[in-house]
Computed example of a mutant assay.
Amino acid sequence: MLRTLLFVGTNIAIVMVLGIFLNIILPIFGVSLGDTSGLLILCLVFGFGGSFISLLLSKWMAIRSTRAKVITAANTPMERWLLQTVQRLSQKANIPMPEVAIFPSNSINAFATGASKNKSLVAVSTGLLQHMSQDEQEAVIAHEIGHIANGDMVTMALIQGVLNTFVMFFARLIAGAISSFVARGEQGRGLGMFAHIAVVFVLEMILGVLASIIQMWFSRQREYRADAASANLVGAPKMIAALERLKQSAEPELDGQLVAFGINGKRSEFFASHPSLEKRIAALKGA
């Protein structure tokens, strides 16, 4: 399914660029690696800046990456039903009507994205429309509406901002200690500078992996809440039926950031954006 690596993928790319820029401006602001307060403030600015840039770009990136077609006027009975269903469920959830899109994919999937509840998007795959009953489709749409109503896009951005700050700050602290150790006197200064740049890059990659584990844990908790929201909107039996249908699907998942806001995410438990379908069904059944 489409996701933990469009918001996350976009965010990583932006943060890497901002990280390079951060290295350049540290001396301009008179911030040394020993000035932890100044370094932390700049990392907060850049960490949250990268996260919110990703959030603002999320809808545009989602549409482009999935080749989704935004439906402004229904041309078929299916499109009419889809628009009416999203409108009805969004009214029931007390949120503004999201944009609606269909993206070409044989997999059964859907996702929600957008910078805010007022600028959101719900997209479903052609595979979902072809292989699910209308009751199951309605439950999946309600799940995505639940993500929007719960403010999950902004929550993800805030969590990502904290994690970005953590990665950028500690990578530079550790790299500063290592490069200071390597740089011994005037002759070692060039080597120390090279070591610092190299270690920052490596540490950002390593700490980024650790941060993604934390991010995915939050994502899994969010999925339970979206499932519960769907159950409240259309009834637990419909959502359970939709998840049972997903268990029969062996199609690949969404790519990138969108996995976190999709209906289905298949990854190893540690890095999974979604709990297992069995756990989600059990939660809906009250087990």
Rank of each mutant, 00 (worst) to 15 (best):
H196L: 14
T10A: 13
A74Q: 13
A231D: 05
F201R: 07
N94I: 09
S54E: 03
R280Q: 11
E223G: 02
T113K: 05
G50I: 05
N23V: 06
T66R: 06
G34M: 09
A228G: 06
K92V: 11
S212R: 06
A283N: 08
G192A: 05
A250F: 10
F194L: 15
K69D: 07
M132D: 05
I281Q: 08
S120Y: 01
L128Q: 07
M168D: 01
I71G: 07
C43E: 05
I25E: 06
P27A: 14
L233P: 04
A175Q: 02
F218S: 11
T113W: 05
S51R: 08
R220H: 13
T165G: 07
I71C: 08
H131Y: 15
T76E: 13
V17C: 14
G190D: 11
F181H: 14
S116D: 14
A229N: 08
P252S: 10
K279N: 15
R64W: 07
A93L: 04
L121H: 11
C43Q: 08
L246I: 14
I14P: 09
L158D: 00
R245F: 00
S276R: 14
G30Y: 12
M78L: 13
G190R: 07
F166P: 04
S212Q: 10
F170Y: 10
I41P: 05
S212V: 03
N150G: 06
L89F: 11
G188I: 05
K238A: 15
A112P: 02
G9M: 10
L121N: 12
L128C: 03
N232Y: 05
I95D: 10
Q257H: 08
G185D: 15
E204Q: 13
M153Q: 15
R189E: 14
A242L: 01
I213L: 13
K238R: 15
I71H: 06
Q187A: 13
A68V: 03
A13Y: 07
K117T: 02
V167I: 14
